[in-house]
Amino acid sequence: MGLQRHGTCENGGYMGGLTADPAFLATTFVVIDFEATTPTGYPAQPIEVAALALRYEEGAWTTVGRGTSLIRPPAFAPVTPAVTAQTGLTPEQVKQAPSPAEALGALDRRFTASNRYLLVAQHAATEAKLIHNQREHCPALARVDLLDTIPFAKHLVPGLPNYKLDTLLAHFSIKQPADRHRAAADVDVTAQVFFRLVSAADEDAQLSDLAALVKIAGRTAKCNMPAQDGLFDI
């Protein structure tokens, strides 16, 4: 995201086909997670976002950017007791938070035109839809395609009872964070899952390069899809 390097993440080591691919090495992977409210009759509204930007350099993951922000939801989408029970976030905490335009605009400005990005998310359809619905506030972010850790994991670790984040954490012996279901904590453990999957992919002949990974786990941002206007015109 154009920031100074903050450190090298654990999980260096074997340089296989995927992590030796020039396209993979040229990509900044941004692990992203939202917490949201789901008001009746409206699409989900974000109340928190976290992003962790990563590059694979010299056999190890390096953090090149990190950010998190609470987001003030509109009046029609209050933080409900159910949301508080899941996330720990309260109406009082988000009342004075930045607006979606402020919070997502600040995140959007960290995506520079000179870099190649892919978003990484657990169940990426959820994040993709939320980003698309907020695209007026984050036009650059809304044009970044995604990688979904669920089909990535299904390809590499077949036979799990399900592919929920908690199941993947248990499979890879990744410790559950104390503040699970907060955006920053979920981004950190999703990144750990992604590291394990990339390491396994290095030994998978079907995942020899980034294009193969995208074919298995990629999701095109809706803003990048061909327009369908007039398809059903009579």
Rank of each mutant, 00 (worst) to 15 (best):
Q45T: 07
A227K: 13
V120A: 03
A85Q: 13
A97S: 11
E57T: 15
T27L: 01
A221P: 00
R5P: 05
L197R: 00
D204Y: 01
V157N: 05
L197C: 02
R182M: 07
H123I: 08
I234S: 11
F111W: 03
G17F: 06
P43Q: 07
E48Q: 15
A44L: 08
L156H: 08
G41I: 11
N11T: 12
A191D: 02
A75M: 13
L18I: 07
L165H: 00
T190H: 00
D188N: 12
S69L: 06
R110H: 13
R135P: 01
V79P: 01
L156N: 09
P158Q: 11
S199I: 00
L231Y: 09
G67M: 14
K129D: 08
H155R: 14
Y117E: 00
V49Y: 11
K154M: 14
P73V: 10
Q134H: 12
T40R: 15
P100L: 06
I71G: 04
P226L: 07
L130R: 05
A44D: 14
T80D: 06
A53R: 04
L231Q: 10
T190L: 01
A191H: 03
F195K: 03
W61R: 02
T190C: 07
A124T: 02
Y117L: 00
K222G: 04
P139E: 03
T90N: 08
V94L: 06
A211T: 15
Q192S: 14
R66Y: 12
A113I: 05
R5N: 13
V64P: 08
L70P: 05
L169K: 09
Q96T: 15
E58D: 14
L213I: 02
T84L: 11
A51I: 11
D33E: 14
P46L: 06
T84S: 15
A170R: 11
G16F: 06
M1P: 11
L54S: 09
H171Q: 05
V189D: 00
E57F: 02
L52T: 04
D179R: 13
T68N: 14
R5T: 15
M1K: 12
E102L: 12
D33A: 07
R66W: 11
V157Y: 10
Q4G: 12
K222L: 13
F194H: 00
P46F: 04
V198R: 01
V30M: 07
P158I: 07
L119K: 02
T63N: 10
F152K: 06
R55E: 15
V31S: 03
P46W: 00
V187C: 14
F172S: 06
E203M: 13
Q176W: 09
A50M: 06
P91S: 08
A184Q: 10
A36L: 05
A36N: 06
P98E: 07
K215Y: 11
G7H: 05
P161M: 06
A185Q: 02
I150A: 04
S208E: 14
A60I: 05
D204L: 02
D148R: 12
L25I: 06
G218L: 05
